[in-house]
Amino acid sequence: MTIIQRLLLVSCLFSMPSYGQVSSADFLKQYQLPQSSVKTLWLSPEQQAAVKEILSHPYAGIRIRYWQDQGRLGFILNEIGKELPITFGIVLNSKGIESMEVLAFRESRGDEIKALGFRQQFFGAQLTHGGDLNQNIDGISGATYSVRSMKKVAKLALYLQQQIQQP
């Protein structure tokens, strides 16, 4: 990313309006994932260990719902920001992350991650062999925890995609 692109990104972050909450149902509708396409992934002990490694803490639960339609996957995942959970909606296709939305932000600070200019950095991201995102994500001053949570959830969704789609 060039300096000009970075400056444009920063200016976008400050110019973006603040959004309200998006319901899970609206998110699925927006990305054309039929609610009836819901499936479940039961986490095996190995998968639970891998998820724990990604999140730096155990996942709350052992079953994850996802929506699958025409090769696309949708997840609705929660992760703690600084103190409260942030709800993310993630859509994946064969090329990685298609879109990532913040459905509910409950913290008092750090909601700059909702801005499209920031979220676009995740679009097209895939997992490297080392388990990291293959795209650089610029941080936001004052939203460090929120950015960290979003990166964790992006990695988690990509890991789950691998687990669901592996032969």
Binding site: S23, S24, A25, Q35, A60, G61, I62, R63, I64, R65, I76, N78, T87
Partner: peptide, 19 residues
């Protein structure tokens, strides 16, 4: 929240069932 034998299975957004 759904639990089985005291273990948390999953947490579901109730809005998925409808408003």
């Amino acid at each position: 929240l759904l639990l089985a034998n005291g273990q948390l299975i999953e947490s579901i957004d109730s809005q998925l069932l409808g408003n």
